[in-house]
């Protein structure tokens, strides 16, 4: 008799045997996804041009997979399966390969997302300066679940804002900060977060005075030049 230790056995999932059988029976050899035949895929010209020009920049075609996925995301708003298939057909790789790459990187969305993408940094430096409150404020304003936004990202119901708690965005000098539609803003207060969401809802440029692009170097004004550092001429 065993000593009381019992292996962990869980019931199988909710997929019934009949469902599973149906699933198997529905599988046809042609459902597999090898490299798509280019002639069978309808690709928007603009997308195709972008991918092809990216392919020319590198010694090996596969290097273009990131630029190609960026192009797909630009075109469709997220990496749609159809878009991935189109890119795969142009590049001559399997769609599975591109999906594998796409799911590896945080910035590629493989499910639909809101119009404006807000990534709120909640890594150490920002967290130390109150990033959690900022994220909560964003979530509250957008009406999404902070926990979901924190872990996997989620979009507001009206489809205007996609919110995600993000690991370090490399702007600890303006902590707590957020990246809104690929532009950096900070330091933010919860109040500003709420304002930003409202502005995004109306597709206005959010909190312009908080944009990183307009800021001076954080290290303060130019100190007395070190005499050893010479002027421009060699």
């Amino acid at each position: 008799m065993s000593d009381g230790w019992v292996p962990e056995i869980k019931p199988t999932d909710d997929l019934s045997a009949a469902d599973r059988r149906r699933l198997v029976e529905s599988m046809r050899p042609e459902d597999a996804e090898p490299v798509p035949e280019l002639s069978e895929v309808d690709i928007p010209d603009e997308l195709r041009e972008r991918i092809e020009s990216a392919m020319q920049k590198y010694p090996e075609i596969r290097s273009a997979s990131l630029p190609a996925l960026w192009a797909v995301q630009r075109h469709y708003g997220w990496c749609t399966p159809e878009g991935i298939r189109q890119a795969a057909a142009v590049m001559g790789v399997t769609p599975g390969y591109l999906e594998s790459v796409a799911t590896f990187y945080d910035l590629f969305h493989t499910s639909p997302v809101g119009r404006h993408r807000v990534l709120v940094c909640h890594n150490l430096a920002c967290w130390l300066r109150g990033a959690e409150d900022v994220l909560d404020a964003f979530c509250e304003a957008a009406g999404v679940d902070p926990d979901e936004a924190d872990h996997i990202g989620t979009s507001s119901e009206d489809g205007a804002v996609y919110l995600r708690g993000f690991e370090c965005l490399g702007a600890c000098d303006i902590a707590p900060m957020a990246s809104i539609d690929e532009h950096y803003y900070g330091p933010l207060t919860p109040e500003e977060a709420r304002t930003a969401v409202e502005q995004l809802r109306s597709d206005a440029r959010p909190i312009p005075d908080k944009a990183l692009a307009g800021r001076e170097t954080a290290g303060g004004p130019e100190p007395e030049p070190d005499p050893r550092v010479k002027e421009g001429e060699a």
């Binding site: 090996e60 290097s63 990131l66 996925l69 594998s100 790459v101 590896f104 910035l107 690991e167």
Partner: peptide, 23 residues
């Protein structure tokens, strides 16, 4: 070459893989 959000790509060999278009 623009990455797409993966800290590990700062590791030099991972960077090479990412540049080659892989994970």
């Amino acid at each position: 070459h623009r990455g797409a959000g993966a800290y590990i790509c700062g590791e030099e060999t991972a960077l090479l893989d990412a540049l080659e278009g892989k994970r």
